[in-house]
């Protein structure tokens, strides 16, 4: 049960983020919502790689009390961590782009309300 708590957190984070994106009318708040969804997904990926009492997958830097026989069961898989890192980097790039676009929108429209930022419609 206790190991499921991260998954509930994932669901909660994604739900909060989606709520912000669906119902908040400010573009900056929507960007924050996007970041929250992204944190949820990142948490999900990192939780997949969790092992109780595991250690980092670096063969040259093993903890002192580890015997080679422990390695298959205890060493965590590096793939989910690599995925999470990549996803965080991409997230930063996306967020930077969104915020710079928001600045330009504010310059031209004088507002960041999504009800007013809609010259493109119909």
């Amino acid at each position: 049960m206790i190991y499921n708590i991260p998954f509930f957190t994932v669901v909660a984070l994604i739900a909060i983020g989606m709520y912000a994106m669906l119902f908040k009318r400010n573009l900056i708040k929507m960007a924050i919502g996007l970041t929250i969804v992204e944190s949820g997904v990142n948490l999900f990926l990192i939780t997949l790689g969790y092992r109780k009492g595991g250690f980092a997958p670096i063969f040259t830097d093993l903890p002192p009390d580890v015997s080679p026989a422990d390695i298959p069961g205890k060493m965590v898989l590096p793939v989910p961590q690599a995925l999470t890192l990549t996803s965080i980097v991409i997230g930063v790039a996306v967020l930077a782009l969104i915020l710079s676009l928001a600045i330009n929108i504010y310059r031209h429209y004088g507002t960041l309300e999504s009800e007013k930022v809609r010259r493109l419609r119909e």
Partner: peptide
């Protein structure tokens, strides 16, 4: 009704997707 659907609001775009 089509114009109502193409409201141009970002929240609606995401709403349709979800």
């Amino acid at each position: 009704s089509m114009k109502k659907m193409h409201s141009g609001m970002l929240n609606d775009y995401i709403g349709w997707f979800v």
